[in-house]
Amino acid sequence: MCPEHIIELMHEYLDEEISPIKEKELREHLKSCKECETIFHELEKSIAYVKSISNLQAPEHFTANVLARLPKEKRKVLMGRWLKQHPFLAAASLFLVLMTGSVLSTWNQEREFSVSKQENLVVKNNTVIVPAGEVVKGDVIVRNGTLKIEGEVQGDVTVINGEQYLASAGHVTGDIEEINEVFDWIWYHIKKTAKEATELMERSDAK
């Protein structure tokens, strides 16, 4: 019968923790002892068998099934992910919100009558008159009042929250625009911003 410690050496060897001296002892013993050699090979064989079955894969949809069972995600994360996935939409909607806010507040603030300053405009009780035979140079803007055009305006006419009358003899070289609703007001601002932006770009292009 072989000494018990030979079996110990086999396990040390299989754990890859055997010292070179002990490994030599084991090898020499195995050469001389058929019985121990068989045991050793059987051990190695069973390890190889066990290792050979290690290729199992998780069932289909495993990840989805687990995720479906998790407690609900925090709203903050969902928002964050949405923003990350749609950066342009996020920026655009943020812009719209801020824009609408500021524009609306100016709409509400500016309830008072005002008119752009041109020398030959006549103002009577919230009514602005471009007198017949006169030529007004530049854009005319009237807020919260009426504009009567009997003469000529060399430029655009904009009436915000009011009315404009163009006499048959009157003449406007540019565009005439009446803005009476909040949405018109916002639209007007968007157009103005866009126009300014393009002008800015054209200017920087020209440079």
């Binding site: 396990h11 299989l14 045991i39 059987e42 051990l43 064989k45 069973s46 390890i47 068998y49 066990v50």
Partner: peptide, 12 residues
């Protein structure tokens, strides 16, 4: 070690 020994007995 014990596990290995048991498997050896069964799988030899």
């Amino acid at each position: 070690h014990r596990g290995r020994e048991a498997l050896r007995q069964q799988l030899r």
